[in-house]
């Protein structure tokens, strides 16, 4: 007989944290260069803020609108009022999703993701994440990650978009 206090998974947590940072920045960048992402954010109310992260103790990524601009606010849930939380049930599932082994849509259908907030907001955010995935990933991987790869986008749109998102992500602008 023994009593155990569950320990941590620092490595997986660190990986997830890095990818959340990256994704957060990418959303901020995509909102500047992509009209679809911009349009989607326009439907959301001013100061709308959402968080994506893992139970039970994070890490988290907070993204929201501030004075009409989309910003990545880091990983602190308390930094501002949050209207929607996309909650991954555990760190292993977060790893699957953020290492792009499972798309957001697939993860939802596998009950890995819970939404805390209004459904319409959640759908908008999932659409944004999908578009950002298309930008960040090579076609081969992205077409597995999203339901329908937008092959009707002109090639230049994707390439220019991808370069734009990448540089802005890394530079944080």
């Amino acid at each position: 007989m023994q009593e155990i206090h569950a320990g941590g998974k620092p490595l997986k947590k660190a990986y997830v944290a890095i990818f959340l940072w990256f994704t957060g920045r990418a959303i901020q960048a995509a909102a500047k260069v992509d009209k679809e992402v911009k349009k989607e954010f326009d439907t959301l109310p001013d100061e709308f803020t959402f968080a994506l992260g893992s139970l039970p103790n994070g890490p988290w990524m907070v993204v929201g609108k501030e004075k009409g601009k989309v910003k990545y606010f880091g990983g602190n849930l308390k930094c501002r009022p949050i209207h929607l939380r996309l909650v991954i049930k555990n760190i292993e599932a977060a790893f699957l999703i953020l290492s792009f082994q499972e798309s957001t849509a697939l993860a939802t259908t596998r009950n890995r993701l819970m939404t805390d907030g209004e459904v319409p907001y959640a759908l908008s955010v999932i659409r944004i994440l999908d578009i950002v995935e298309v930008y960040l990933l090579p076609k081969l991987i992205a077409s597995l990650a999203v339901k329908r790869y937008p092959s009707w986008w002109p090639f230049g749109h994707k390439l220019a978009g991808r370069i734009g998102v990448y540089t802005r992500t890394l530079l944080g602008i």
Partner: peptide, 12 residues
């Protein structure tokens, strides 16, 4: 576009 059932449909 704002109804949750859209998530579970096979095609976007």
């Amino acid at each position: 576009l704002f109804d949750g059932a859209t998530i579970y449909n096979p095609e976007d």
